[in-house]
Amino acid sequence: MTGQPVPVTLRVNGRREVGRVEPRVTLAEFLREELGLTGTHVGCEQGVCGACTVVVDGAAVRSCLMFAVQAEGCDVETVEGLGRDGLHPLQQAFWDAQAVQCGFCTPGFLMTALVALRERTDWDRTALRERLGGNLCRCTGYEPIVDAVLAAAEAARNPGGEAAR
């Protein structure tokens, strides 16, 4: 019969995970259903909304557009891996800026922003808006999200500075 489960081994938030999944199971579904990491949300299943964004081998990607078997041997980071000892600076910045309303899009934004800030911390507002353009939020109007990421960038540039406190 077509589509029998196959083994998959990957690292998620630094931990080795082994599973058996049908090839048609997406990475998002694997994280949520097999590993119970429900912080990764699925909002469109077409790669448009960005709610399911996770980091695979350092790149922010859509976990709804990737089958779990494709992540064989990969290093996956999800929102649950951020700030396991208290809030990650990005999470703290989101909290401070009231960048969360319903919170459904938030994990995707955090993962996109995480990679954006690893790339560089000198984002200007316009460039950052473009960089975050693949993540949709229906509640906040985006401005506080942009504020939060810029504040986190500022804190990363000046670890001892005002924004870091």
Binding site: Q91, W95, G103
Partner: peptide
């Protein structure tokens, strides 16, 4: 600051499908 946010920020929200 919103008391709702930390749970949502760490991915521990409980939406129906979760």
């Amino acid at each position: 600051r919103r008391s709702e946010d930390p749970t949502l920020l760490v991915g521990r929200g409980r939406f129906v499908d979760d």
